[in-house]
Design a protein around this nucleic acid. Structure first.
Lengths: 417, 417
DNA sequence: TATATAAGTTGTCATACACAACAAAAACAT
DNA sequence: ATGTTTTTGTTGTGTATGACAACTTATATA
């Protein structure tokens, strides 16, 4: 299923008519994208998968090889009769930088075109990292990492995952640092600093897209995704293989999904939403933990605890989560609901109760075939998903993509979903 | 914007590779679809719109003409210098039947490939129309209408709009008649009766798609749609130019969007949802009306009434509607919210209050550019949208489409989103 | 009536993929 | 060992489709 869509609005070419060149581009893109998703594949598999003629595959692979994007390995421990197939694999001579900015840390990864994380650097940030600080730190790390890249490595660009939508006035990203920095200037400034195209997107959406392409969401085209952070709930939706974006990229932020009616008195941050109702801190409090602990430890404590207070806290959270999921299933009719962060822990700890709550509040037909799944904890998927942003244009048009060396950016590159 | 998608899941061809034939098909489809949406266009406009060469347009139009799908009119009162262009228009020698089944009536329209309703027949049904009854009535009307068609007219198929999702256990379609008839058998039976391919879909989604392609939603690619029926609220979402469908076609049914937390005691029909909270009957009751009246009359009464009770009823409904819309905007970030049925009346009657309520509960960035619009009351759009279902395959592959004369159906035709 | 302008038609060319024949490389049978 | 079978890659030819350019048609304007 090559139905994913990492491309940002406005990138798609608007010419309705198609010409021969489009065919070539499409097929080139199809092959490279397939390899990117699935890893090395034999030529025979490619012909089978694409339905193209062997000679065509030959021509396309040759072209990709000439572009320095793939390489052919004579053979691997193959089996069966007949001439052994040539295995086509993606070369990591093309990389992208993935930057994940969080409230207390910044991570920068070098991700190869193959979708593998080649190197990662994590650094703690001051408590309320001003955007300026984040940009400088990102620039410095990138500059360092750049030095260590093997000679001849080409860089497609930089992807940045930001928690919550910048310029959102609710609690998800309430640091004034982010409020003062709308997305566009953020991308532009960082781009000016590193001299590479920079793409910015919401971290939950990027995480979801990575889950969809490489993680537990791979088999599904319709996914509802909820991730529980230290503060706030992020979310996203894949519909028909494509992420919900909405008019200006704010769609799918399910942390704002409402559980209870809003108070008539306007309050800062919207009461009654998922973000407001589901809180990791409530679990910590029940456990009597005052320090910040990571998800792994939290899971251990929750599983081993026998305290009634803890059980009650879990029950409350599961109850609310179940009602929210039921509501989301009713609206989105997904094949799978993916839970990440501490929401994944809740699923692990009390799946039965969660499913019971969902079943009580869901419409039968939508629910029957829906899976509730937990994402793999602590994986590199967010970084991989983030790297997809700058890689997307290359995957879409392998022969036409130009590796930017110039600092100047086009409007499209600056624009952020 | 040719970004609409009336095709049902499973119809899309799955071959990843593209060949020359795909180009031809795509271009043929593009031209026919453009004409279908926009009406007659000059060849010059087509070249401009598609970016294709004049000679290519010439070839494609000639082929479409040979297929009997379009005709070229020498000229119309044109202006300006230069040789006058040939105007290409769609011939209504190809038609589709649109069937709208409601609780108390059944409407069948003949819709031309041009998107014009050529003829309509409306008939009242017994109060709780058994599916069997509806099918027989539809068949009889279709048979009648068929006789009056001009010689040589070809029929693409039959589209059926059903209120709510069949096999949904909640209040939208609570008649046992529909509960006993799952969608697939419905389409199959009617198809057996009329010997034509039959496609079934939710009426709200069809209405929305028609609004998106031909109505007030035309300028937008991200739309939230709410329609207020006599009982229950229907809804739909257009995201990135395509309708939300979900895994099994149940997505976007916003009548189930939750306003207040569900009761812990399971009740038949889900309490606290839009359908449960927004009720046309509440307005009738406040007006002291006991008989059923149509939307036009209702609007008149509401506008002219000075009763405090009526005002309060309106206020309550507007309040709830506003909160719901705000929640939907937060999740879907649409460019436009379309209100139909009595919800459109509410907008007309008290737009200021509605927008005020929305503004109170919405996230600023998503709201700033969002339009709240009312659909044109009493238009033919539902019928047109419904006719798109059988027309879609023809529009998608003009030269490959085969007009079914045989009664046998393929699995795809039987399958319903 | 001549000229400019806009638009449709026709013929040639380039190209992308299909197809068929051939070559290569390995497994299997004798 | 050697030939046969099987699978795969390569090469050359064919076909179709859209680009492009030259030509023709048709109208407005001077």
């Amino acid at each position: 299923m090559l139905d994913s869509d990492f491309s940002q609005r406005g990138v798609e070419d608007n010419a309705l008519g198609r010409t021969r060149e489009h065919v070539r581009r499409h097929n080139l893109s199809t092959i490279l994208t397939t390899l990117h998703r699935e890893g090395s594949l034999g030529r025979n598999v490619l012909t089978q998968r694409t339905g193209l003629n062997r000679s065509t595959i030959s021509s396309l692979v040759t072209e990709l090889e000439a572009l320095g994007l793939v390489e052919e390995v004579p053979a691997t421990g193959q089996t069966g009769a007949g001439r052994p197939t040539l295995v086509v694999g993606i070369r990591d001579s093309v990389v992208a930088f993935a930057v994940a900015i969080d409230i207390d840390s910044i991570i920068v990864s070098v991700v190869g075109l193959s979708g593998r994380v080649l190197k990662s650097v994590s650094r703690r940030t001051p408590d309320a990292p001003a955007a300026r600080t984040a940009i400088v730190m990102a620039r410095d790390i990138i500059t360092d990492l750049r030095k260590d890249l093997p000679g001849g490595t080409r860089i497609a660009g930089v992807g940045v995952a930001l928690p919550g939508q910048v310029s959102v006035s609710d609690g998800v990203v309430s640091e004034p640092a982010f409020l003062n920095w709308k997305q566009a200037p953020f991308a532009e400034r960082l781009s000016d600093e590193v001299g590479l195209p920079v793409f910015v997107d919401n971290d939950a959406r990027l995480g979801l897209m990575a889950e969809h392409d490489f993680g537990v969401g791979k088999p599904y085209s319709n996914i509802v995704y909820l991730v529980g952070h230290a503060v706030g709930i992020g979310g996203g939706v894949i519909e028909g293989g494509r992420p919900l974006r909405g008019a200006r990229g704010f769609a799918g932020d399910l942390g704002h999904f409402r559980l209870t009616p809003p108070l008539t008195i306007p309050t800062p941050g919207f009461s009654g939403t998922l973000s407001a109702s589901l809180q990791r801190d409530a679990l910590l409090e029940a456990l009597g933990e005052t320090a910040q602990i990571d998800d792994l430890k939290l899971e251990g404590l929750l599983t081993s605890s026998t305290s009634a207070r803890v059980r009650r806290a879990i029950e409350t959270q599961v109850e609310r989560l179940g009602i929210a999921i039921a509501g989301l299933i009713n609206i989105f009719n997904p094949e799978a609901v993916l839970l990440a962060g501490f929401l994944g822990i809740l699923l692990e700890v009390d799946r039965d109760h969660l499913e019971k709550v969902i079943a009580e509040h869901v419409l039968e037909p939508s629910w029957t075939h829906t899976q509730i799944l937990r994402t793999e904890p602590g994986s590199d998927l967010l970084m991989i998903g983030t790297s997809e942003l700058p890689l997307a244009p290359l995957l879409k048009d392998p022969s036409g993509f130009e590796f930017t060396r110039a600092v100047t950016l086009t409007a499209v590159e600056k624009s952020t979903s």
